[in-house]
Design a protein around this nucleic acid. Structure first.
Lengths: 196, 196
DNA sequence: TATGACATGTAATCTGTTACATGATTAG
DNA sequence: CTAATCATGTAACAGATTACATGTCATA
């Protein structure tokens, strides 16, 4: 086969939900139930709020030494385990956030990147956020041309609905690129007039 | 818990990859290898091109009576199994395409909907495409206000990068809404000046 | 005759979904 | 008292990833 996606990953890969948990725990030590509430009520609905996902994920992260849970016995005898990041967990989170964006990552606009970026400032500082945005911009500029190409060559042969779907691929990516510029300039403005 | 996502599904739920396969087979009977090439080379990279995903999926669909494979023995003795939709498969595909869009479906802009819409014209005709778009527009108009609300209340408390990520949620949805209008008007234009 | 594309598969493993189960505490 | 909410779990299962295995055919 010419070049199918193979990708040999070294084990211990953390899934998206795991990073979402790490990021939230860095912001505020929480129980599994706290996390479930966040995943079910806020804009982070992409991640599963089911106990069958959260609790096993917490145990995996704990076994990997990335978080540590302590049972809070204080007020009221309702058992409740609060998890916190360990230093190892923090460094793992930081490494994930600072990974450069590759063109292949851009397929889904909703994934991975936004989660990383959302956490970036808290975890690694504004400089890291800016770097991430620039890495994104670079990847994006390489992403669009092939799509235009596909539309030009295949578009006329496709049914209207299929062509329109492909056009969303383009329009959506362009909107995302605009957001990237917007975000970069927001950081530049902050740097000048900011609270520094 | 107030209202966590539970969702009791009746069995025989077909996963996204399954529908992608059904849609492609409706357009053109193909082998597993053909499908893999499509998933690895075209804009449909969201779906797995790995043999460990495709071949089991084909067998599941065949067991469910949605597709039927025949071994092509013609030219050259290189075995190659060509799959086609059965009538049941076609009707299942049509049912999936014609499902109305619900607000909860809108979380990820890249998912499900675009696949359904892309196939809609071929499988169920332009009228179905237009209906899908209108169903989408209705769901979208209910989707945006809560996001604006969240930004207004939580935004000022968030770090810049987290707020910008939330703003992408809004800008991206607005861009999608614009595409929806664009697509509807494209169909209207076609209906007037079209090949009818 | 060796390489690489064609073509199909399988086994181990991981993660998430679905659907229960359990018990403590608080509000009406 | 009873219903709802807090809080944690588990078992069965489905589907995807990873990695390997097998064999055919064309061409350089």
């Amino acid at each position: 086969m010419p070049e199918m996606n193979s990708a040999k990953q070294n084990r211990t890969k953390i899934p998206a939900l795991g990073y979402a948990v790490l990021g939230l725990l860095q912001q505020k030590p929480s129980s599994g139930y706290d996390l479930r509430k966040i995943f079910s009520s806020t804009a982070m609905k992409t991640y599963s709020d089911s106990p069958g996902a959260i609790y096993p994920a917490l145990r995996r992260l704990e076994k990997g030494g990335l978080i540590r849970g302590v049972i809070e016995e204080m007020s009221g005898l309702r058992r409740r385990q609060i998890f916190r990041l360990t230093p190892k967990g923090l460094s793992e989170l930081r490494k994930w956030i600072q990974r450069p964006v590759k063109v292949e990552d851009l397929g889904r606009r909703d994934s991975d990147f936004m989660l990383r970026f959302a956490f970036s400032e808290r975890v690694a500082g504004p400089a890291a956020s800016i770097e991430l945005l620039q890495s994104l911009a670079a990847a994006q500029s390489a992403f669009l041309p092939p799509l235009h190409q596909q539309l030009k060559t295949l578009g006329p042969l496709m049914p209207t609905s299929a062509r329109l779907a492909l056009e969303w691929g383009i329009q959506g990516s362009e909107a995302w690129l605009k957001w990237t510029q917007f975000a970069i300039s927001a950081y530049e403005k902050e740097r000048k007039g900011g609270t520094s």
